[in-house]
């Protein structure tokens, strides 16, 4: 399901003294099946943009086309039901949305809202709980008795239970420990491959952008600054610096290496330590051959 923004503007508390514009003329495309990262500082308009993806906010002007649905300022809330089913959103600290008596019931909440029977919904919930690696013994426990990491998984399963085609993730690993972080990010990667999801990731972690994304959107103060492949975005370190954006660690390391020795010339910007290692070995072998 592809997503297209056309000249989207959004203004909070319009026509009051507290009026404040959060998005300016945003035009962009998020292709079907892509892993798109949205980056930018606090206040750049990331979360406002995110809330447009499933109709929680409607543009003040311009339009958004998601699949075969168009959203403008005139779209009625009633027409947004199917959209919300197709676009699942995992908000920041999603465990704050848990409320049911048991883990399974909570996961079954969304499918029930979208018309599944109790039986069907619980069956879906069971599948989703397994999908996010929750151990079976917690299925009928209260979600509030679980550890932070497990609560996070329950909340994610609760969104996956709608079987969305697009999955929007707002800082999904915030507050987790390193192991939990890697597990959750790998889980999304697997889901994307198995279920052909389109993933949209809002994050500050440039290493995650470098490792997982194939499309990057950069926002600054409500304006679209760039929309390109990660290799392109991270190749211009001067531009990134001007906009106070960090480089992925591997790219930064490669930069420093290049500064020290001209022999380290990278044909392609390395984004992860694996890519960097492979390129380094090529370099080393070339130097070796030249010497011989």
């Amino acid at each position: 399901m592809s997503i297209r923004f056309e000249k989207v503007n959004y203004i909070y508390q319009q026509a009051t003294p507290f009026e404040h514009q959060a998005l300016y003329d945003i035009t962009l495309t998020i292709p079907t099946g892509s892993y798109t990262a949205i980056v930018g500082h606090t206040g750049s308009g990331k979360s406002t943009l995110l809330q447009h993806l499933n109709g929680l906010l409607k543009p003040v002007s311009g339009r958004i086309i998601i699949g075969d649905q168009e959203i403008t300022s005139l779209t009625k809330n009633k027409e947004l039901g199917t959209l919300r089913k197709h676009v699942g959103v995992v908000f920041q600290f999603p465990e704050a949305q848990l409320f049911e008596e048991t883990v399974l019931k909570d996961i079954a909440f969304a499918p029930k809202n979208f018309g599944s029977s109790e039986q069907e919904a619980l069956e879906t919930a069971r599948q989703m709980a397994k999908l996010v690696d929750l151990p079976e013994y917690v299925f009928n426990k209260s979600p509030f008795e679980l550890s932070g990491g497990q609560m996070r998984r329950v909340a994610i399963a609760g969104v996956l239970a709608m079987k969305p085609e697009v999955l929007v993730l707002d800082e999904p690993t915030a507050g987790l420990d390193p192991k939990g972080r890697i597990e959750i990010m790998d889980m999304f990667q697997n889901l994307k491959i198995q279920q052909h999801l389109t993933i949209i990731l809002v994050t500050h972690q440039m290493d995650d952008v470098a490792r997982y994304a194939d499309n990057v959107i950069v926002l600054e103060k409500g304006h679209l600054l760039a929309n390109n492949f990660p290799e392109k975005i991270f190749s211009d370190s001067k531009w990134l610096q001007e906009h106070h954006l960090a480089l992925p660690q591997a790219t930064r390391f490669a930069k420093e290496l290049q500064k020290r020795a001209d022999s380290f010339n990278f044909s392609k910007v390395p984004l992860t330590e694996e890519e960097l290692a492979i390129q380094l070995i090529q370099r080393i072998n070339e130097v070796k051959q030249n010497d011989e």
Binding site: D177, P178, K179, A250, F253, E273, E274, L276, A277, I281
Partner: peptide
């Protein structure tokens, strides 16, 4: 379950190669 500094990660990747 903990993280390591980047230089350690790179070392591991090089070792693998």
């Amino acid at each position: 379950g903990l993280d390591v500094p980047f230089s350690e990660k790179l070392k591991t990747a090089l070792k693998k190669e």
